[in-house]
């Protein structure tokens, strides 16, 4: 009962947040930034957290989404948001193309292959004139209609992002309880055992990867609508991929709300430390940011949510070490 009350209070808080900070643009924007980061990290969570396939190349999908949005504007004159479905579709196809060869790989090999694919796409994008090359492409400089989603305040973005995140978390929640969720957990715990039990592990990993890619792409399209510019580095850069992983891991990967919690901590931390320390130009922002991540990882290696939900089924320390390269 208490838990529902707590949860309900959080939902209400999320809904009224913009009213609480109304007239303070920086905090209005902060809310939107947190939700946007949470969408990306939650999308990553489907394959990285639930299925345990640690992709460090999700920027590929993010970039596809961002570029799809800007390309329909640049080449067709459509509002950028119209590119979002296109980006999602392309990302699903792309996920299949990348996933078939890479998802066979285990553990770190998969992570490294996704890094390589991410870098590959980044370099190729910078040589494509269609994508604006290394200079990147800008969205509509001036809003032409309401569909360009060019708002003075970040509050409309906040509610758009909130709706998307709610849908994504709902979908994840449903998957968690559906057959696919069972399969994914089984694959994560031991792929060999899952296969022995007749789970077609390759297929379910691929489904998770495609779904994850589609929503990461949506996050990219939304990013473009808000910021209005993308170049190879801000679309496909490895930092984009790493941040998704870090946010999910910080909150608790494989946990429905883990990525949101991670975003709630890291985004304000990054913004505030940059605002208060960045102007000195001594790199102090990242000294603080890095130190806080290290401290959290040191004391809560399974993420912040492990504080509230001790999971006895989690492997004991020694078996983690024992995993060696025997897996």
């Amino acid at each position: 009962m208490n838990r529902y009350l707590f949860f309900g209070a959080l939902v209400v808080l999320a809904l009224v947040y913009p009213l609480l900070v109304q007239g303070i643009p920086v905090w209005e924007r902060m809310g939107a930034l947190v939700l946007l980061a949470a969408i990306g990290a939650s999308a990553w969570n489907i394959v990285g957290g639930y299925a345990g396939q640690v992709s460090v190349g999700h920027a590929v999908f993010f970039g596809f989404g961002a570029y799809a949005a800007v390309v329909v504007y640049t080449h067709l004159g459509w509002p950028p948001i119209a590119g979002a479905p296109l980006g999602m579709l392309l990302s699903v196809i792309l996920a299949a193309v990348i996933g078939v060869p890479t998802l066979r790989l285990s553990g770190h090999y998969f992570s490294m292959a996704t890094i390589a694919v991410g870098e590959l796409v980044r370099v190729l994008s910078s040589t494509s004139d269609f994508l604006g090359g290394a200079q990147g492409l800008g969205g509509p400089a001036m809003p032409r209609s309401v569909f360009d989603l060019s708002f003075l305040s970040a509050t409309p973005f906040y509610y758009i992002f909130l709706a998307v995140l709610a849908f994504l978390l709902g979908l994840t929640w449903w998957i968690e309880r559906a057959r696919m969720g069972f399969y994914l957990r089984a694959i994560k715990d031991s792929e060999r055992a899952a296969r022995a039990l007749g789970v077609s592990s390759g297929r379910y990993k691929l489904y998770a990867y495609m779904l994850s890619g589609a929503f990461t792409s949506l996050a990219g399209s939304l990013y473009l609508c808000m910021f209005g510019f993308v170049d190879p580095e801000s679309g496909f850069g490895i930092l984009i991929s790493v941040k998704m992983v870090v946010m999910a891991a910080l909150g608790g990967a494989g946990n429905l709300f883990g990525p949101l919690v991670g975003a709630l901590i890291l985004v304000p931390l990054e913004e505030l430390s940059n605002s208060y320390l960045g102007g000195r130009g001594a790199g102090l922002t990242f000294v603080v940011y890095g130190a806080i991540i290290v401290i959290i990882a040191r004391f809560l290696p399974s993420g912040l949510l492990s504080l509230f939900r001790p999971r006895p089924s989690k492997p004991a320390p020694k078996s983690e070490i024992a995993s060696g390269h025997a897996d």
């Binding site: 910021f227 170049d231 102007g279 000195r280 130009g281």
Partner: peptide, 16 residues
């Protein structure tokens, strides 16, 4: 002074 951290997003956030 504000740091754009080399990213278009941070640049815009700081401008705001």
């Amino acid at each position: 002074f504000a740091d754009n951290q080399g990213t278009p997003a941070a640049g815009q956030n700081q401008a705001l």
